[in-house]
Design a protein around this nucleic acid. Structure first.
Lengths: 212, 212
DNA sequence: AAACATAATTAACACTGTTAATAAAATGAA
DNA sequence: TTCATTTTATTAACAGTGTTAATTATGTTT
């Protein structure tokens, strides 16, 4: 039955082409501006055809959401080769921040926006393996190894990891949403010049250091 | 010219009624579901009338955005009576978290969503006093007083304050967007039961304590 | 009462996501 | 190859959205 396989391949092809078009539009114009009709126009199909391959817009966005997590995961993967756990933890922070800054739309889709999350809860309940968990697991393991190496000994691993994630997420969010720059400009008289994202991150590292 | 004043009052009245209707719908159904037409229906006016009192939807949402900051400001104001700076800092964290949990829509509008921020940048440039700055100033002052009392002595005040804000904002965001609960459920086998928001916050306080 | 200024409305534009009904194409069996 | 069946794609339409221009209604002033 080679024909059926070829058909399946064609179906998968179109599914991928839809996703690629959506990705291009999304990374260029953002979530709202990426309409079904524009995606359809890009791949030269009727808007309704898209609904034969994706349940709805949230479904498409969830697919991009997954791509984002794969990208972040691959960047985290490199850090497995940093043997010293505390060095790895700090590097994870840097990588996370770089990912957010270099892929702001992905970051928004993955961690800030509400819609894909609700799609996860609605359609991918339980059994579905969420790529994001892998990254969080890596963080927990690193914190655990840090504790073995004598860091953060008085803290619970999971809550400490959540604190680290919260801080990094908060920092990246405030930066991406413009709050950091807003504070920098309106308080320019009291704050000296400089890159506040970088400075705050350095402060975070300093905090970790004095928490040994 | 008492008549003119009465007219002005009527105009302001309607402006406020629009805002109240918008607020009610917004707190009930969220940002997207709050449409101009629904607001108009609520106050029994034509949709286009609203444009005589507000420039556009973002303008209305910015007004609510301001209300939110006033509310947060009033809750922070109470803390001025906590004389011990380190106690006040911890209390600020609690108040901030409570505000986020009790007013999730306001919090989203004030700190998570992008639209009102862009409205601020577009229309209220510079001279306009942003209520949010007051809260951040209060945080900076408190951190400064903590330093005077022997806490965080090796850290720069502003970057430390930004770290505190980032952590609290990140924690509240992850909670509101459902990421915290998601991690709790999918990792239920490895994590013991409990309120992870509370636990993480306690961990944060513990971190501050050991940073003295 | 007539002229004017303000306020509110209707109609319309250009979009959005999504569904039902219909047409086209590809496949299976005769 | 022809016919019937299934799959794929399309058109038309619904119910919305924010927003603007042109028009009507209202109230004030002369």
């Amino acid at each position: 039955m080679g024909i059926k396989e070829r058909k399946e391949k064609h179906k998968e092809d179109l599914r991928q082409r839809i996703l690629d078009a959506a990705k291009e539009l999304f990374l260029k114009d953002g979530y709202e501006a990426t309409s079904i009709r524009k995606i359809a126009e890009k791949i030269e199909f009727s808007p309704t055809t898209i609904y034969l391959y994706y349940k709805d817009k949230a479904d498409i966005m969830y697919a991009l959401h997954q791509e984002g997590f794969k990208l972040l995961g691959s960047q985290f993967g490199v850090l497995q080769h940093v043997s010293e756990p505390f060095e790895r933890l700090k590097a994870m922070g840097r990588v996370y921040m770089s990912f957010a800054l270099n892929n702001p739309d992905f970051y928004e889709l993955m961690f800030i926006m509400k819609e894909p999350i609700e799609f996860v809860k609605a359609h991918c309940h339980d059994e579905e393996w969420e790529e994001g968990e892998q990254a969080f697991t890596a963080l927990i393991m690193t914190v655990d190894q840090c504790k073995d190496a004598g860091y953060f000994t008085s803290f619970d691993t999971t809550t400490f990891a959540l604190n680290v994630w919260s801080l990094m997420h908060g920092l990246c969010s405030l930066k991406l949403q413009g709050h950091l720059d807003h504070m920098a400009t309106t308080k320019a008289h009291i704050l000296e010049e400089g890159d506040w994202l970088e400075k705050t991150f350095d402060g975070f590292i300093a905090m970790l250091n004095s928490l040994k």
